[in-house]
Simulated assay, not measured.
Amino acid sequence: MMFGNTQSELGDHKWRGQLDRFVKANQQDLAALFWGLWLENGNSKGTIGIDLQPTPHFVYCPQEAIENLNDQVENRLQEILGIVENHQPEIEVVMIGIGKGEIKLIQFAPEPAPPDCFKQVDKDVEGLLDLLEQRMSESLDS
């Protein structure tokens, strides 16, 4: 628990606001990517993550790794685990943001739904990964 924020601590949390703005500006493309990866892999590789270090890129966060981290932080990630385990991929996007030694849940229900976003986008999964990683590198500080 933080009680006093030094300037460096405030800077360490800047990534969360930047990530929120990136997600909001790119909801439909992120939903399309999410659905495309879901069609390819389902839950087999884990939850999609956005890792900001060393440069912003997409990763998979295996369920076991999230559970192990939850054990290490005295079950403070229990709510995130519940959301990850119970999300409905056809209507909502769930990802994990990873930055500065912390994680952040990314969850939204786009309009249109993820399957429709994927149909409307004129790119395959690789094209979406390239596009979004390029946008991330332009808009997110590492």
Rank of each mutant, 00 (worst) to 15 (best):
L39G: 08
V59C: 08
K45C: 11
Q88W: 05
D124I: 01
S139L: 13
F34Y: 14
D122S: 13
W38T: 13
Q88E: 12
F118L: 12
K24A: 15
P110T: 02
K14C: 07
Y60I: 02
G49F: 00
K100N: 15
L140D: 01
L129Q: 15
Q53D: 15
L33H: 02
E133V: 02
A113K: 14
L19Y: 00
I106L: 05
G99N: 00
P110M: 06
C61M: 13
E9A: 11
F58M: 08
V73P: 05
S137E: 15
E79F: 07
G36E: 13
V125Q: 12
S44Y: 08
K119E: 10
H13D: 14
L39Q: 14
L105C: 02
D29K: 10
S137K: 15
L105I: 05
E40N: 09
Q107N: 08
D29T: 07
E133A: 02
Y60H: 14
N75L: 09
E74W: 15
K119C: 02
R76Q: 15
W35T: 01
K123L: 12
A25Y: 11
N26F: 03
Q78I: 06
E9S: 12
W38G: 08
Q7F: 09
A109P: 04
A65P: 05
E133R: 02
Q27P: 06
K119Y: 06
M136P: 00
H87S: 03
L37M: 14
L52Q: 04
Y60D: 06
W15I: 00
N70W: 01
D122K: 13
F58H: 04
G4Y: 11
